[in-house]
Design a protein around this nucleic acid. Structure first.
Length: 457
DNA sequence: ATAGGGTTAG
């Protein structure tokens, strides 16, 4: 009895330390406990596996699993779900499948939790059909969906451009009484609708949240605030900020970053700095996202020397520059006219092994066109493996501006052929431009393609 | 043990 109690106490200590990311301390508690005759159990090891997967990586989680086996403690489904979360965090489908395989071999059946995690991984990899298959085959047919299942689906649909489907599903589940929305559900939908520009629908979901009796939290406020800034309602956005502050929700960098970046984007640098300062004064540590916003502010002002200092500061504080930092830098170099420097930095980015440098390439292409180097822009465009509608819009728009309608129409056709779209206004400019240059057959070709594309949509 | 808010480009 005494021994059991102390194992439980040890587990509480270990869990608390893990939550604070003090993994080494947690381990030393365990070592001390063992010395005093208290043995770790499955809960102790599961806590460690979860913490290592979450805060370090999957490999370190596996090391704990091995220690667990050496200690003759049998892992259970919770152990494997934590490992699955680790694999999913690394977006490694093969590692997820390997874990499921291992589970099968030792006779542990995956539960809803396992499949929710797997579904989330598929969604994050941009494979909504596969995620849906997991739902259909494994959750719906064999088990029973949990509220997290639905919330994961809503998030996944929104993030993959199916906000409309998310909303339809939400309504249908609600109507049939299958699912009672939670605060997190409202947060997901409001954010998704805002991001896809469906501000009216977002407002109506927000209204429903107000009537639901649920209390909005920091996520809700940040989302709504961003929505205000997106629709250029700056005063309303700031009001939301003050309400957040009043209610004690300005405890982390999120709200400050939201305000600062919104101001920076619209050229209100003074206000942007003001809110950033407020965060620093409150003693909130800067993370990489906060630094990225600051880097962007300096770039907008062309203070690249200041950016150098910041990059140093980032490294010194043990943080790592990410895709955003480098992309912002590429754009910043372009802004001050250092195209060669930007090109060089872009090349450097390619060596860093990010999963995509599309945004940086898009910046580069657009800026090159704008400074009259559309030939270089086109060369890069040809070489780009990944392109999106922004790539095409940028090129087409800029080529039209320099009245190179023929090339613009070729790029537009390539875009439509690949199932992507540019802004309607940009399409019109191409057709009109071709016509005014006497290129009637080309104009007809483009028009026909545009019409066809519209039908397909 | 899984799900939600902040940063880059047209």
């Amino acid at each position: 009895m005494v021994c059991k109690l102390s194992t439980r106490l040890m587990n509480i200590c270990v869990s608390s330390l893990c939550k604070l990311q003090q993994l080494e301390k947690a381990e030393s508690i365990i070592i001390d406990a063992i010395r005093l005759g208290t043995l770790p159990d499955v809960v102790t090891y599961n806590t460690l596996v979860a913490a290592y997967c979450r805060f370090v990586d999957l490999d370190s989680g596996y090391l704990i699993l091995n220690r667990m086996k050496e200690a003759k403690i049998t892992p259970n489904v919770i152990t494997y779900n934590s490992l699955l979360a680790g694999a999913s965090k690394e977006l490694s489908l093969s590692k997820c499948l390997k874990l499921l395989n291992e589970m099968d071999k030792i006779g542990i059946s995956p539960d809803v939790w396992s499949y929710n995690t797997l579904m989330h991984c598929f969604f994050r990899l941009g494979k909504p059909e596969e995620a849906q298959k997991i739902f259909q085959d494994n959750i719906f047919n064999k088990l029973s969906p949990s509220s997290t299942t639905f919330n994961t689906i809503f998030t996944g649909l929104c993030k993959n451009g199916y906000t409309h489907n998310a909303l339809t599903l939400f309504r249908s589940l609600q109507r049939n009484g299958i699912f009672t929305p939670e605060l997190i559900t409202y947060n997901i939908l409001i954010d998704g609708l805002c991001k896809s520009g469906q501000l009216r629908a977002a407002r109506s979901i927000l209204k429903e949240l107000g009537q639901s009796g649920l209390e909005p939290n920091a996520s809700t406020y940040t989302t709504v605030m961003k929505y205000c800034f997106r629709s250029k309602k700056f005063e309303e956005g700031i009001e939301v900020f003050h309400e957040m502050k009043k209610n004690g929700y300005t405890y982390d960098a999120f709200p400050y970053c939201t305000v600062s970046s919104a101001f920076a984007k619209t050229g209100k640098l003074k206000d942007a700095y003001k809110f950033f300062e407020l965060m620093t004064k409150k003693g909130i540590e800067k993370d990489i996202v906060s630094y990225n916003i600051l880097v962007n502010m300096y770039c907008i002002e062309g203070r690249l020397d200041k950016v150098d200092d910041l990059l140093l500061e980032i490294e010194e504080s043990g943080l790592k520059c990410d895709q955003y930092t480098h992309t912002t830098l590429v754009d910043g170099l372009c802004r001050i006219g250092n195209i060669d420097g930007a090109l060089e930095h872009l090349k450097y980015m390619d060596t860093l092994g990010f999963d995509s440098n599309l945004v940086a390439y898009n910046c580069m292409v657009d800026r090159l066109c704008k400074v009259g180097c559309s030939n270089t822009a086109l060369e890069i465009y040809e070489k780009m493996e990944e392109k999106d509608s922004i790539t095409y819009t940028s090129i087409v728009h800029n080529l039209c501006k320099e009245r190179n309608f023929l090339t613009a129409s070729k790029v537009l056709l390539a875009c439509l052929n690949r199932g992507m779209r540019v802004l309607r206004g940009t399409q019109r400019v191409v057709v009109k431009g071709l016509q005014s240059s006497g290129l009637y057959s080309e104009a007809r070709k483009v028009q026909a393609k545009i019409r066809l594309a519209r039908i397909i949509d």
